[in-house]
């Protein structure tokens, strides 16, 4: 197991290098010279040239890349020329918001999707299964901005149970924080559960055809034990994959949901950086988010090994 983890960790290195390369070069492809952005349209060519020299922008791109990478390895991701805030400060300030949103959304999504999938698989082809499969398909095609507006209308405007927008840090007032988080998390979860349900349902149906399920029945085990112990674990590999991908995606925040509900998360930070051409922030945040995504996939790989002993022992 230790060997497995070590080997997976080694794989991370080239992936992270590729991520940093892509981030840096894509950011430098964006139109507009950084020096002009900072100095404004009225700047004289001499001033621009001086600033370019100070910032190292007159150097060849690969030298700038290695300089940037060297700073990052020392923990310096750069600093916004607008706010003076470092990338790390900006991210640590915004990350808890997106992280909490992601965790809540996944918990709600799994709490809806997993039980429905098990019930549907156990009675596949039945009326409930067909109804839920149809509903999941309908939900899957509902865009987030629409479900967000519907939820706001229902819970904030009509019922007045929950606030429509705003944010309070969890440490300040946990109850108020959760009240602000419920609707955005629910909006994301509404898009998550149909995928979770469909994937787990079809894997469960396949697993329930296996010989070892027939044997579990022939052993006289209770239906609940067959479903939860014998069938759920071998069926959950795809579920873990898509949950991992979803989490990785949500680590970067969600631009639409954070904007609609006015949550100060990573998604809003990125959008702000793009609008203000804050390339340093953009570059640093994209790199951190991509690294988070890669690490999430590493955790998914480890979970495979936890779920399936054959992967752990290098048989599959």
């Amino acid at each position: 197991m230790l060997f497995f983890v070590a080997r997976r960790l080694l794989y991370l290195i080239p992936v992270l290098i590729a991520v940093s390369l892509l981030t840096f070069f894509i950011a430098s492809l964006l139109p507009g010279d950084l020096a002009y952005v900072i100095l404004g349209d009225q700047a004289t060519p001499e001033k621009v040239a001086a600033l370019r020299h100070d910032m190292g922008l007159d150097q060849p791109i690969w030298i700038r890349y290695f300089g940037w990478l060297g700073n990052i390895l020392q923990g310096d991701f750069g600093r916004s020329f607008r706010t003076g805030q470092t990338v790390l400060q900006a991210v640590t300030e915004r990350f808890p918001v997106s992280f909490e949103l992601m965790i809540l959304a996944e918990i709600i999504g799994l709490a809806i999707g997993v039980p429905l999938a098990i019930v549907c698989a156990a009675r596949s082809g039945g009326a409930f299964d067909r109804f839920m499969t149809g509903s999941a398909f309908a939900m899957l095609s509902l865009p987030a901005f629409l479900s967000a507006i519907l939820l706001i209308y229902l819970f904030a405007v009509e019922l007045r149970w929950l606030p429509a927008t705003g944010y309070v840090p969890f440490a300040e007032d946990p109850a108020a924080n959760l009240r602000f988080m419920v609707l955005p998390a629910l909006t994301l979860a509404l898009a998550e559960w149909p995928g979770i349900m469909r994937v787990l349902r079809s894997d469960m149906i396949a697993t329930l055809q296996e010989d070892y399920i027939a044997l579990a029945k022939a052993k006289g085990l209770k239906a609940s034990r067959i479903l939860f112990v014998h069938a759920l674990k071998p069926s959950s590999l795809t579920l873990v994959t898509i949950t991992g991908i979803n989490i990785g995606r949500l680590i970067g925040g969600t631009v639409i949901v954070e904007t609609i509900f006015a949550l100060p998360g990573i998604g809003r930070l990125l959008i702000g950086a793009i609008y203000t051409r804050d390339l340093i922030i953009l570059q640093g945040v994209v790199l951190l988010v991509a690294a988070g995504f890669v690490v999430m996939n590493f955790i998914v790989d480890l979970l495979y090994a936890v779920l399936d002993p054959r992967i752990r022992h290098g048989h599959a």
């Binding site: 296996e210 044997l215 085990l221 014998h230 674990k233 399936d308 002993p309």
Partner: peptide
């Protein structure tokens, strides 16, 4: 089943739960 009436299936590669 399993108590008074037991069975051994054909293929032991698939009749035991792999996990």
């Amino acid at each position: 089943r399993g108590r008074s009436l037991a069975v051994v299936f054909q293929d032991p590669m698939t009749s035991l739960n792999p996990v």
